[in-house]
Each structure stands twice: as C-alpha cells, then as structure tokens.
Simulated scan of single mutants.
Amino acid sequence: MMLKHRNIVRFVGYCYETKNECLEYKGKYVFAEMVEKLICLEYMPNGSLDKYISDETSGLNWSTRYKIIEGICYGLHHLHTEIDKPIIHLDLKPSNILLDDGMVPKITDFGLSRLFGQQTICTSSRDGTL
C-alpha cells in the first residue's frame, strides 16, 4: 500500500474471510477453518505483457516497446532506490507486468518480494518462476 509510482500497480483493497465448516474426516465430523484471501488491484485493460511478446505479429511498434521497457526500468529504480526500505521483486517476468489503456507498464505480484536495508543481497531461493 505504501508504493505510489506510475509504473507500479495500485493496491485498492483486500478481503479476508474465515468460515468454519463441518466436514467428514476419517469417518468423523470435524470443524475445518476455511480461509479466503482476495486482493483488489487497479484495473489494467490491456492485460499482461506476456500476451504482447509472444511473436512478431503482436502489433507493438518499436516506440511502444521502448516505452514499456523504460517504464519497467523506472518502476524497478523506484523499488530499489527511491523508497526508505528497498523492495526486491524476486519474480519479475512478462506475466507480472500489466499494461493500462495507454500501454503504460505497471509491475505487479509482489508475493515473493522482500524488503532489504543497506546490505548485500544474496538469495539461494528457488521459489518463483523458472
């Protein structure tokens, strides 16, 4: 919620709901806690970048491609250097770049991201997308 930048998707809100349900387990009835978590992000009408870079017929001219690359760089620069505690995304890929109606890229999906202070960053994590 603290991130406010043109190239980072805006977080609108969330919903967290817990329900108790009675389920059969090994012949006995038990109460199970069912949790639903939903987040609401700003709407990006052009979807994700991965559908535009699949082949040469995607219809993107070089000016638009450059604008997308530049926007992603600005977003990463903001995450890494322009906030008090730098955020490292750790799962940046075309499907995690959303495009608004003006083809402005916005970084999303911070599920694997980490906050780092002024220190060397070294990770051996194999989480995320191969």
Rank of each mutant, 00 (worst) to 15 (best):
M1R: 12
M1Y: 02
M2S: 13
N7G: 03
I8T: 00
R10N: 10
F11D: 03
V12R: 07
Y14L: 11
C15V: 10
Y16A: 11
Y16F: 12
Y16P: 04
E17S: 07
E21G: 01
E21S: 08
E21R: 11
C22A: 13
C22Q: 13
E24L: 14
Y25I: 09
V30D: 08
V30E: 14
F31K: 10
F31Q: 05
E33P: 00
E33A: 02
V35L: 12
V35R: 15
E36P: 00
L38C: 13
C40R: 05
C40D: 05
E42G: 01
Y43C: 04
N46S: 03
N46V: 00
G47P: 00
S48Y: 05
L49V: 07
L49K: 06
L49R: 05
L49F: 10
D50R: 13
K51Y: 06
Y52E: 08
Y52L: 07
I53H: 06
I53V: 15
I53Y: 09
S54I: 14
S54P: 03
T57R: 11
T57H: 12
S58F: 07
G59E: 12
L60S: 06
W62I: 09
W62P: 08
S63Q: 14
K67G: 03
K67A: 15
K67T: 01
I68S: 05
I69A: 13
C73L: 14
Y74F: 12
L76N: 03
L76T: 07
H77Q: 11
L79Q: 00
L79S: 03
L79P: 07
H80T: 02
H80Q: 02
T81C: 14
I83K: 10
I83A: 02
I83M: 05
D84Q: 12
K85R: 11
I87D: 09
I87H: 13
L90C: 12
D91L: 09
D91G: 04
S95T: 09
S95Y: 04
I97G: 07
L99W: 05
D100T: 11
G102F: 14
V104A: 09
V104S: 13
K106E: 13
T108M: 07
D109L: 08
L112Y: 08
S113D: 07
R114S: 01
F116W: 04
F116H: 03
F116K: 00
G117M: 02
G117L: 06
Q118A: 07
Q119G: 10
Q119K: 10
I121H: 10
T123G: 01
S125A: 02
D127F: 10
G128Q: 08
L130W: 13
